[in-house]
Design a protein around this nucleic acid. Structure first.
Lengths: 200, 200
DNA sequence: GCCCTTTTCGAGCGCTTGCTCTAGAAAGTC
DNA sequence: GACTTTCTAGAGCAAGCGCTCGAAAAGGGC
């Protein structure tokens, strides 16, 4: 993932940056940023707080690095259905299909970034990141919808679907069994309605 | 709002319970539950921590009371468009219209309960409250949609709109200027599409 | 082998947190 | 006006927080 320098001066680090970053991401994602203490991280990451601070600088910097990793994962596993060349309304439906499996696999986690939208509004840098994240999903959706609808329709439906994606994620975090499934069915039924009205 | 006992033995309380509760709600809503300290509350509420603890028990109990108050407000100002007798798809559109003004008035606050969905997943009681809150909105939407569509369509569209409502709220919390407006237009355009297909 | 750099380790610092305690003040009751 | 009951004020407690520090350990360069 990240590019590692070939050489290093001094004592070599005893852990893999990427592995530790994944553990931190998991914890921030599952428990929330504020609720995760540096001691929690120490236990889960298997390294001391000093090592963590030496490698990442601060708890907040660790979060920012985790966001990077999270976004890369989302792009590769979800947004790709929207951004690959030629993706249209059918791609949008595939996106929601994958989103369903993603949410199921990451039960009660929701979305790292969406969770931050609710809780870390005081930090300008983080707020910038979450705004950019929404923008990224919006533009991916729009790119695909543009291939199936006229400009105005595409834009309107982009907004409606973006709201649906965020709402689905928030629901996934505290959802009861079946809640997310029903929601997903409702969204995809709407998309199916659009498809039927399309010229074959 | 709350019913006050007529009499009280001993020294009477020097503040209004409801006023203080409103201030607490405002703070929890704006800054988030975790980010709001008891000192913050002390300053904003104008009473000492002792008085606060004497009156409400704990910070968490204060939140639960604030949720009650918040829900009552939502019901009276928003859900009423869906629950009043005879409300149908037109009522749903009015609901979103009011939601837009509500979000604008409470800038960067989002929804108290939606925010809790993201950050307070560890507390079973609070999780119960947020699940119930979703259920309440869902059933209000469903009640209105049932009057305009067949059972299956109503259920599917209820789910899609619930997702949209939650997504809109999350966006409102960190939204850039215009972001919420565009999203709302996208959602209402979808509803308008449903209306056009309806038998006049 | 010895330096130089960097990481690891464990202890712990200063601060904030939610909450409590004690003393005294303010009402109703008789 | 004593007595009871409740509320207010302010200090302060124990625990937990993010983060740092000094010393030891582990490698590469010469």
């Amino acid at each position: 993932m990240a590019d590692h320098p070939v050489r290093s001066l001094g004592r070599p680090r005893e852990f893999e940056l990427d592995e530790v970053l994944d553990s931190a991401l998991d914890l921030f994602w599952k428990r929330g940023f504020r609720a995760t203490t540096t001691r929690d991280l120490e236990a889960e990451l298997g390294i001391t707080q000093s090592s963590m601070y030496n490698a990442f600088g601060s708890k907040r910097d660790l979060l920012l690095a985790a966001i990077d990793r999270y976004e890369a994962q989302v792009e590769k596993e979800l947004l790709v259905t929207l951004t690959q060349p030629g993706a249209d309304l059918e791609g949008v439906d595939r996106f929601f299909s994958r989103l369903g499996r993603w949410v199921e696999r990451h039960e009660h986690r929701g979305c790292l970034v969406v969770n931050l939208m609710a809780s870390e509004t005081g930090d300008d840098v983080i707020r910038g990141r979450v705004v950019a994240y929404r923008k990224k999903i919006r533009s991916a959706l729009h790119g695909a919808l543009m291939r199936s609808f006229d400009a105005q329709t595409a834009e309107l439906r982009t907004e409606a679907l973006l709201a649906a994606v965020l709402g689905l994620h928030i629901t996934a975090r505290t959802g009861q069994p079946g809640e997310v499934d029903r929601m997903l069915r409702g969204i995809r039924a709407e998309i199916a309605g659009w498809q039927e009205a399309l010229p074959a």
